[in-house]
Design a binder for these strands. Sequence first.
DNA 1: ATAATAAAAGTCAATGTTAGTCAAATAATG
DNA 2: CATTATTTGACTAACATTGACTTTTATTAT
Lengths: 155, 155
Amino acid sequence: MQNRNISDIIESYLKEILADSNQIEIKRSEIAEQFDVVPSQINYVIKTRFNIQNGYLVESKRGGGGYIRIAKVNLINNVNVIDDLIDYIGEDINARKGLQIIQSLYEDKVLTKKEANLILAAIDSNTLSFADKKIEDQVRARVLISILNRLRCKE
Amino acid sequence: MQNRNISDIIESYLKEILADSNQIEIKRSEIAEQFDVVPSQINYVIKTRFNIQNGYLVESKRGGGGYIRIAKVNLINNVNVIDDLIDYIGEDINARKGLQIIQSLYEDKVLTKKEANLILAAIDSNTLSFADKKIEDQVRARVLISILNRLRCKE
DNA sequence: ATAATAAAAGTCAATGTTAGTCAAATAATG
DNA sequence: CATTATTTGACTAACATTGACTTTTATTAT
């Protein structure tokens, strides 16, 4: 455990709390002050160590009474499938291939029929039509990847 | 959940009352005094938390015996509300308002938690970020409208 | 009835309080 | 040395609070 920089220390501090209560709410400025770092370093720690790949969901609110909430979520068993699909999608994907992905997730019972239909409504080519088809495919890729990442956590 | 701001507290106070009787009538000045805020803060709370996208209708009357009436509308047995929501969305909608819509659909059991989360992933501002924020809000509007229209048809 | 006054609620802009972004500087690693 | 990770801070965006001013409605006085 040598060689620990301040980001690592903040990370383990937060994870220690999360071990008890699987959700915490922090004030960015308080944590920053506690560890004597600039507030934006907290964002760095969260971005690099508390993302969905690691099984954490993060929400926040600005303004008076603002907070950052970090929740530990359980990941589904076959995370690899999700990773593979995200790799397959890459930077852009057309409507036909997008449909195939959702269809196969439905067949594998990862999605219900209604869930699949809602997603299809979102990534449909009428919905996402742009002047530039390249852009359309890029947006579809981002939407699909975001949805797939959400599918990592079981309810 | 600690250290919330006063607007959140007023919000939950009103929602608590609304849980019993699905309509309430308040005197702005009374509520303001009760929570020791300026009266216009009540307008702020209503504007940000009790809009149609949250599933609430608000009426009011000024002058002596004036009041603000807040009514909860149930989205599940009110197809017209879908139309209202689509009108409300219009050409573009920002992420916060989009989230409110999905949240109220979840609260009214039109969507399951998983369905709501998948949609939120799709319309999240990170997912739909463009160079031009105007475009982002337009795409979000198209996606949401497409999903709402899909919700019209019973499974 | 009409006008004046009082009693509500509405609007809006200024200010305050948070968190987010981004890129430059620095440190660590291979 | 090159690359990646961390640290820092200036700037931005979002949300909340406040108060002066406006509008609407009801009541009272003439």
